[in-house]
Design a protein around this nucleic acid. Structure first.
Lengths: 213, 213
DNA sequence: GCTGATATGTAGACGATGTCCACATGTGAG
DNA sequence: CTCACATGTGGACATCGTCTACATATCAGC
């Protein structure tokens, strides 16, 4: 095997340098190609040009690696949301808050459709409320997808588009709808729908949330 | 090994009798105990008191077995919905339609909370629109969970609680919300919530759907 | 009732995976 | 310079899905 390395840099030293990061990156690639089930420890080490056991110096077991990959994938979701939010240019603060709220949904669902494997991986590992706010899962703004949604809802209250008494737990209602649609799209019965119809459904679901919240 | 059998009936003949059914039932048990990943072909054959390869006389591969188990689990979801719907006793047809619609959501989510493993398995295998209406996934009424939802929405239109122009694709909006909440409950950030809070969220999500549809 | 084709189950093997234990070798602190 | 520790290697094991033979039970047709 020696320095046999499939990837970018050929390892010159005995030490890898940053194996932990390399394994996570390989895992993210695997997730893109085949979802969480494809995040295989041995294959990740293979791509990092390293023996399977080397992974155990950085991760307790495969699940720990998958957790780290999951966090990285959630950060990608955050970036996708931020990208959609950045396109809001209205100067009207009320309309801006409304559109930035909707952008959470569209960014989330756009990512789910563009990178289904990574999307599934992002929410495959069982995460609790604590890890939903971990900084490892944040985007450029330092906020996780969940926190981006919370903030958008707070802003909705600020501009009086959402009555304060309906604010509590609103993130779970909104998240449920959007996340459920993503699941139906990815491996649910809506998988085969033409893209235009999917886009229509996205708009309608977000309409429903906005109206029903 | 001979007639070594862990389950109910000891196999007396060389032939098993109904191995296909036995494997599916073992698979459903495994799903209850550990979700789709726990539906392991070899373990299912072990529980059926049979050699691993015997399964290949009835299923093309593990995925085929998992698909069958998935169908059985979806039937369980249908039964759960029907159970909740059966509790609606109002004589007022309008209120009855409304409550039967809500019962789709409560029955669905009650099953998700009571049998998370089977619930996840029910929607793990990638199903398309065709399999969502397969009779193997139906409950006592002969309807799949998806069809029960569609019927409830049709009834909502009949009693004029839902304008006909908003009927198209409404099942996907409602399903998204309820299914998404189930996912957040089972291995999302809402996993650790006390049961009472979960019940409140269920009511609120269904409220949102009813209001926003 | 016999016989042979077919359905069903068995036996053994292979490659892949996660993971364990023992060992080797860089690297940095003293 | 040396030695402890961090990091990677090598080999092994159990389990899993699946393949290729092989064996036996059951039923159709004579």
């Amino acid at each position: 095997m020696a320095t046999g390395n499939a990837n970018s840099t050929v390892r010159t030293s005995y030490r890898h340098g940053d194996l932990r990061r390399a394994l996570i990156e390989a895992g993210v690639d695997l997730a893109r190609e085949g979802g969480p089930a494809a995040v295989v420890l041995r294959e990740a080490t293979r791509r990092a040009g390293v023996t399977p056991n080397a992974a155990y110096r950085h991760f307790a077991d495969r699940q720990a690696l998958l957790d780290a990959v999951c966090s990285s994938c959630q950060a990608l979701v955050a970036y996708s949301i931020e990208a959609d939010q950045a396109q809001v240019t209205t100067t009207d603060p009320v309309e801006a808050a409304r559109l930035r709220f909707r952008a959470v949904g569209t960014g989330y669902l756009r990512f789910a459709l563009e990178q289904p494997g990574q999307f599934q991986t992002a929410f495959s590992a069982s995460s609790d409320m604590e890890s939903a706010t971990s900084s490892a899962r944040a985007g450029a703004s330092g906020l996780t997808p969940f926190q981006l949604l919370s903030q958008a809802l707070d802003d909705l209250v600020t501009v009086r588009l959402l009555p304060p008494e309906r604010r509590p737990a609103a993130e779970f209602l909104a998240w449920s709808s959007v996340h459920g649609l993503a699941e139906l799209f990815i491996d649910g019965p809506l998988r085969a729908l033409p893209d235009a119809v999917k886009q229509t459904l996205i708009v309608r679901v977000i309409d429903m949330v906005e109206k029903g919240l």
